[in-house]
Design a protein around this nucleic acid. Structure first.
Ligand SMILES: [Zn+2]
Length: 275
DNA sequence: CATGGGACCTGCCAGC
DNA sequence: TGCTGGCAGGTCCCAT
């Protein structure tokens, strides 16, 4: 589910409230969301640590801990990272089913992870995990230039849609925003990446950044599972132009949106607008 | 090396 | 109404 705009929305919502807080207590409700190390060791390592930062790289989040350690988090398809005040009433209990991993903070708030499909979860790492992730550039970074984007495309025969999904080429796009960026740029998803002209590469650079920025401003795209850290839905789903709109009239030319399988994933595009 | 398919899981929804 | 199959925002692993 969550792509760059969703993960960054969560980061922005959480960074202020949880920075400086100490993790008082941990409850692992479903051990499948604790990826490493084992549950007992995870609790031992993380309990009592203070959160001093929350960073994002691609679709990953990292909670930096003091005096040492990091929590690497990936939401995969259905993960939610949420934050709420706990009831102060004596004997009040955390509602069952609230989350699969609960981190009780020292200010009376709960930081918790819920993942319907259990694909995502937490890794404890001694060292900063980001340098080892082998991810491509951040598309919204100031030093991600059109020239750098062109260098990524040159000579690549992979289909452009696959390349947009390749986190080692550029980090943070997923199935929704890859389709939306290609639609806005007027480029068919099955074109070989290296076959794009300079003008097409430039259009894709601009449309990729534009759609990510607009989605971020809207708090992300909520279809099923994604929520902001305070539980609210994102709003960008109403602004999607092709994703999930098979058979609907293209907002630009009126031709029905087509869907095809690209690998094992559905790709949406307009046969009238994209060439 | 690049590409494709399956695995990992659960829930939802369309269609019968 | 109730069941069934297909499908879902991601990534990893293995076979070809
Ligand atoms: Zn069109």
């Amino acid at each position: 589910m969550p792509e760059l705009p969703e993960v960054e929305t969560i980061r922005r919502g959480l960074a202020g409230p949880i920075t400086g807080r100490t993790i008082k207590r941990i409850r692992i409700v479903d051990p499948r969301v604790v990826k490493a190390p084992g549950p007992a060791e995870f609790v031992r390592l993380v309990t009592g640590r203070r959160i001093v930062g929350l960073r994002r790289r691609g679709k990953y989040l990292c909670l930096d801990l003091e005096p040492a350690g990091h929590l690497l988090v990936h939401l995969k398809m259905s993960g939610r990272l949420l934050h709420r005040r706990l009831s102060k009433k004596a004997g009040a209990r955390v509602p069952t089913g609230l989350g699969h991993l609960l981190l009780f903070l020292d200010d009376g708030f709960l930081l918790y992870y819920h993942d319907t499909r259990r694909f995502g979860g937490f890794h404890y790492r001694t060292d900063d995990p980001f340098p080892a992730l082998a991810l491509g550039p951040e598309p919204l970074d100031p030093d991600f230039s059109p020239a750098r984007w062109r260098r990524i495309l040159v000579g690549r025969q992979a289909r452009i849609k696959s390349l947009l999904l390749d986190q080692q080429a550029v980090a943070g796009l997923g199935n929704i925003y890859a389709a939306e960026a290609l639609f806005r740029a007027g480029i068919r998803p099955d074109r070989p990446a290296g076959s794009l002209s300079g003008a097409e590469a430039g259009r894709l650079y601009r449309s990729m950044r534009a759609v990510l920025k607009e989605a971020l401003a809207a708090g992300g795209t909520s279809i099923q599972d994604y929520r902001q850290a305070d539980g609210r839905s994102g709003l960008f789903q109403v602004s999607l132009r092709v994703y999930g709109r098979r058979g609907e009239a293209c907002p630009c030319c009126g031709v029905p949106i087509k869907a095809c399988r690209e690998g094992s994933r559905t790709t949406y595009f307009c046969p009238g607008c994209q060439h």
